[in-house]
Structures are given as structure tokens and as C-alpha cells.
């Protein structure tokens, strides 16, 4: 991230200075402004789901979910940490249900728990799965299309499902392959 940020930032900085130096500072300020408005949107989503998730956690509901999924998480994520398993389970369910925004806090908690375990592999695997998108119903897209007067807004469902399944599978296979090659 450091490299990506520095490279893009410096190249853009030089380009802006050549084209129109006066728009440099306004660009930075408006970047911060949009980050604030995004943070507000995110906070609304997180407040709802983290509130609910805390109730679920206190009532022991998360533990059942984790217990059901623990054989899977042992096999794929190579973790036996129960906090990590719980959060991975919640993260994946949110993703599948199409409430992707709610999935983020669980992923971050899972990654923190995995850090204590020193489980670098599981952290990266979770990132790869999340970053390739695993939603079953593309809710945002369907809403956008029906808003624009599409005749059959939901007919995008099947192509989307095929593509999202393909991208996740492809990336996971590639990742596991890369880990094997790297370690031998």
C-alpha cells in the first residue's frame, strides 16, 4: 500500500503541477471531504450491524454459528481460534447475503484475532475472498437498473453469479497455488 500510494501520489502531483497547479490543494481538500461523507455512510451501516452483532454475541448465537463452521475454518483457514472463526463466519454470511458493508467490521476483527495466532495465511486468504466479492444477489446493481427503467432488472442475476463465483474460485486457487510454490 505504501508503494502504491507513493507512486500514484507523486506521479499525479507532478502531472497536476504541469497542467494546473492551482487545482492541487482543492483536489486534496475535496478528497478529504468525500472521505468524510463515506465515513458517515459507513458509520450508519456499522452502527446497525455492530449493534446487532453485539447482541448476538452476548446471547451466544455467534458461538453456535462458529461451532457449525469450525471444521470448515480449520480446513480452509487453518485456524482453531474461536473468536477468529466466529468473525470469519459472520463476515462470509454478510457477504453472501449482499450486505457487504456490514461484512467489513467482522473481517477486521477476524484479522486481529488471526494476528495473535500469527496466522498470516488465513489473513491473506480472507482478504482474497473479500476482495473478489462473494455476493449471491447483486442488490445495488439491481436497484440501479430498475431505477433506470429496465424491463427486467433482475436478469443480471445469473451472469453476475457466474462471474462472482468464478472470480472468487479463481483467486483462491491461485492464492493457494502461490502459497505452495512460495513455501517450497
Amino acid at each position: 500500500m505504501n508503494t502504491v500510494f507513493t507512486v500514484i501520489f507523486i506521479i499525479s502531483l507532478v502531472a497536476v503541477t504541469i497542467i494546473s497547479p492551482s487545482s492541487f490543494l482543492p483536489a486534496l481538500l475535496s478528497g478529504v471531504e468525500s472521505s468524510l461523507s463515506i465515513a458517515v455512510t459507513l458509520f450508519c451501516i456499522y452502527a446497525v450491524w455492530m449493534g446487532l452483532s453485539r447482541i448476538a454475541e452476548k446471547s451466544g448465537l455467534n458461538k453456535y454459528a462458529a461451532r457449525a463452521l469450525s471444521p470448515l475454518s480449520k480446513k480452509f483457514f487453518k485456524t482453531s481460534d474461536s473468536v477468529a472463526t466466529q468473525n470469519i463466519a459472520m463476515n462470509l454470511s454478510c457477504n453472501l447475503l449482499g450486505i457487504g458493508g456490514a461484512a467489513t467490521p467482522f473481517a477486521v476483527k477476524a484479522i486481529e484475532a488471526l494476528e495473535k495466532e500469527g496466522n498470516d495465511y488465513a489473513q491473506k486468504l480472507l482478504f482474497v475472498i473479500n476482495a473478489t466479492s462473494v455476493q449471491i444477489v447483486p442488490t445495488t446493481v439491481i436497484a440501479l437498473r430498475s431505477g433506470a427503467g429496465s424491463a427486467a432488472a433482475a436478469d443480471i442475476f445469473l451472469p453476475s453469479l457466474i462471474c462472482t463465483a468464478f472470480s472468487t474460485l479463481f483467486a483462491v486457487v491461485l492464492f493457494i497455488f502461490w502459497c505452495k510454490v512460495w513455501r517450497t
Binding site: I8, F9, I19, S30, G31, W49, G51, R54
Partner: peptide, 26 residues
Amino acid sequence: EAVRFTLSLLPCLAAVFMMCELFEVS
């Protein structure tokens, strides 16, 4: 927890968005 979490994201968000905006403007 959500308040703390959102606040902890804010620095990253601000930095990434500044970069994106600059990239677009350039």
C-alpha cells in the same frame, strides 16, 4: 464499537481519497 471502528478507518480513508482525487484531477 462502531464509532471507534469508523474513527479508526478515517485516516486511511482520507489518505486514499486524496490520492484518488488527485489522480482524477491530474
